[in-house]
Design a protein around this nucleic acid. Structure first.
Lengths: 258, 258
DNA sequence: CCCAGAAGTTCAATATATTGAACACGATTC
DNA sequence: GAATCGTGTTCAATATATTGAACTTCTGGG
């Protein structure tokens, strides 16, 4: 068997790859684009884009505003909600915290890493307000968040560097880590400790602890976090909660490991 | 201009339509499926599915577990989170309810109609528990929900009939409307009244009122609903809240109308 | 009012994906 | 241990999507 086929990664089912590229581009761009903009940006011939976008609109993948500008359609929502609901990740997460009352008073969130950001895929906001509510679908720079660090810490150093090659995110608070070197130092500490910490890096006054969730292969597939107000976060409490969080994350990992 | 092109709804860009069908099917099915299951269910030739699934896996649209079973991949999350973040609808919803406190005590939801189902795209859960929490991305049969009815009521009769040609959804409670005839009668009442009602059709003991949200062209693009417990839903209160809901929906329509 | 430019639409030739049949592989059964 | 069933993979012929060029429509300027 040959170890790699050249045609594999390149081009097959171009329509699908184009559609994915279009949706990616639409979600990366802040302003809404016109069909012609897309053609220029993605090097798609006008006529191809025409038929493709028509089908995509029919399928609910994109929507057009009055001016004909394109936006992401609602259809993907049904898939991602299912990804969340079914993905053993979230059910395991819920299951664990329904049983284990020790952590049930805290706000717990689950995110997945995408490039240099984390996307919130589940949260159980605690009764006691934090001043922050996490919303499903919300994204934050991975470098500042506990879950992001937990997931970045599991990547090879070179991969981390590669992801931030395009630039380091702008700080959210005065505590936000400023550059790749500082981030890597933090990741080293986190690896040693077994869980990661965001001490006011995303919001002043809020401390989050994060731990990695792994799949059956040991690959990190999500991050589990626990948020508390800074005043609650005494050194010993952080250690205690961190350990609990780690075991919770391990429990989730075990559940999804089969 | 011809009113309908036969080739339009039928088949174009089959690869994309197949991919969407696969993702839909995966999200509708509770267990994880194997590739062969998909072929049987969707009548896709094995070899076609092979190439398609390979590309879809590469693109992160589907994932395979160790046993080769298929699940929804993480890629759609980035799109739907962007839809949530950027969608005019959702931001208009937020904007409106941040300003207008009249309805702020109630649970308010926003859905979009897809075929015969509604998808929840935004919600502001009230403090007072309803026994039901609406989660973003959740889907319910349009025929039973207030928002679904509000959106169906705006379609031509023939279109409504066409959508349910494949069968009417199974009732969720003993109050759920049972067939197309009853639904249409209900829609007539709703049109006359200006808002629609789900009186225990989705959950016994919960009453919802729904109103349509329109875009610049007057086309209905979403449904806004207010939920309350059945005991709160006296006739006069329903009328009063219904009127307020209608004006809220009109407010949102104005925001997205430009 | 007419014209220039851009965006969008249509169409026939071509390059490409799709498909059924044949082939490998592993599990399960006898 | 041999055979069968189901699954996944490969391949060449065909049916189909893709593409550039020509055409329409619309907006904005002179």
């Amino acid at each position: 068997m040959d170890h790699k086929d050249v045609t594999k990664g390149g081009a097959s089912v171009p329509a699908l790859r184009r559609a994915v590229a279009i949706l990616d581009h639409l979600s990366e761009t802040s302003e809404e684009l016109t069909a012609a903009d897309l053609c220029r940006a993605l090097k798609i011939p006008k006529s191809t884009a025409h038929g493709l976008l028509q089908a995509m609109e029919e399928l609910g993948l994109v929507i057009r505003d009055p001016a004909g500008r394109l936006g992401i359609g609602p259809r993907p929502m049904r898939w991602s909600s299912r990804f969340l609901a079914k993905s053993d990740l979230v059910s395991a997460f819920r299951q664990h915290f329904d049983r284990d009352a020790r952590l049930s008073g805290y706000t717990i969130t689950l995110t997945v890493l995408e490039e240099t950001e984390v996307v919130y895929v589940a949260c159980s906001n605690s009764s006691q307000p934090l001043g922050v509510t996490f919303r499903i679908g919300m994204r934050l720079p991975a470098a500042f968040t506990a879950t992001g660090k937990a997931q970045l810490a599991a990547l090879p150093e070179a991969e981390v560097a590669a992801r931030f090659a395009g630039g380091f995110p702008a700080p959210l608070t005065r505590y936000s880590v400023r550059d790749l070197a500082a981030l890597r130092a933090g990741l080293d500490r986190d690896r040693a400790r077994g869980f990661s910490v965001d001490d006011g890096e995303t919001r002043e006054g809020m401390t989050c602890l994060g731990a990695p969730v792994r799949n059956h292969e040991g690959r990190v597939v999500a991050g589990l976090a626990l948020s508390l107000t800074r005043s609650e976060a005494t050194a010993e409490k952080v250690e205690e909660l961190g350990a609990q969080l780690r075991s919770a994350a391990d429990g989730i990992s075990a559940l999804i490991g089969g």
